[in-house]
Design a protein around this nucleic acid. Structure first.
Lengths: 194, 194
DNA sequence: CGATTTTTTGAATCATATCAACGTACGTGG
DNA sequence: CCACGTACGTTGATATGATTCAAAAAATCG
């Protein structure tokens, strides 16, 4: 299936789009092809685009003062990925976005998207609902991250993102869970022995 | 200043409202008065309203299987508070909302708000932007929560929410930060000795 | 003021981090 | 297609930091 069709189907699951809007989406969302390990956004640059993943897998991560990586989000086909703070405020990004596999991203500039909102209120509604959902999902992660033991957080991760578990190296999952690779290895050992 | 004016000013910081919408807001957002410790929402009930705090201070918290409280959010005048997942999906709430001081909340039912979105697209835009910002703020909390040492998370909290620091007991701040009250007490001691 | 809640302190315990070494898998160039 | 190198995963020993439990001190409320 072509990338734009995937995007249109994705949006149509939430709001209905008439044909003129569908053409606008096809026109204004520009595909970008990334090779494995290629960077989509660097910390320090401003994120000028909203981005939808049509193919592949990416990660969103930060590098702290001690050169430690912390993964905030994995994203695969059908997900959105961005440094939203940078995008919304047009300030330098606070994290990196990198392809973990060869990937295709559809992106639209903020200017274009803002124009689209006026032409297509349904699209604005789509983003409202999308952000509501994203907020809720993140809230769940935040509260579970602090209350549940690691074993449980890890199995939650596996259940919630089974595709990602397969495609991403273990040390990155450890980073996402906020523990060291050694600890995750031991957690897995404990779990498999039961 | 009257509660509705506060809400209207709050919304007007982000989108412009014409007078007819302002009247609708005055009509449809219903004030609710809460005494200190009074519950606004119980875990297990469905949250049918969107809620804006006109006065006071509330908290949003979970109680886990071990009867441990985990505070997800504090909110004061000018903030919104809800169990969004419950509100959006009309399923039982996964956490509690309680007044920490005598408080006034303006609330509107989901039905009414959905109707308002059709009458006032500016309002829908307001919520889109609001959720974007909320998402970003929560994302920051999530990533800093996992990367920064506790001392730093505590001073970030103090800097970000100076009002709340004053008004909320220390053991609740510990709960928000995801540590025990004893640990927070020791962190404070270490910090003050420098 | 007395009662209750909150904060502090101490000692023992537990979980994860850290550091270092070893094992394994993968893919690239010869 | 094999061999080597690099990246990833596992394991062990030790260190660190937060938790737990218990009790005392301080603050708050009626």
């Amino acid at each position: 299936m072509d990338s734009h069709q995937l995007l249109i189907d994705h949006i149509s699951e939430i709001v209905s789009l008439d044909d003129s809007i569908k053409s606008l989406i096809r026109e204004r969302f520009i595909p970008r092809h990334l090779k494995k390990k290629e960077m989509l956004l660097y910390k320090g640059d401003v994120s000028h685009h909203m981005r939808f993943i049509a193919e592949g897998c990416l990660r969103n991560y930060n590098i702290d003062e001690n050169a430690q990586e912390h993964i905030l989000q994995f994203a695969v086909k059908g997900w959105w990925i961005n440094d939203l703070y940078s995008y919304l405020t047009e300030t330098p990004a606070t994290f990196f976005i990198q392809a973990l596999e060869d990937s295709v991203v559809l992106q639209i500039s903020k200017n274009e998207l803002t124009k689209l909102f006026d032409e297509a209120p349904a699209l604005e509604r789509f983003y409202r609902i999308k952000f509501e959902n994203a907020y809720v999902a993140l809230q769940n992660r935040t509260i579970h991250g602090m209350s549940k033991p690691i074993e449980e957080r890890y199995s939650d991760f596996r259940n919630t993102y089974p595709e990602i578990e397969q495609r991403v190296p273990q040390f990155m999952i450890a980073s996402y869970l906020g523990i060291t690779p050694e600890s995750l290895s031991r957690v897995r050992k404990r779990m498999s022995s039961k």
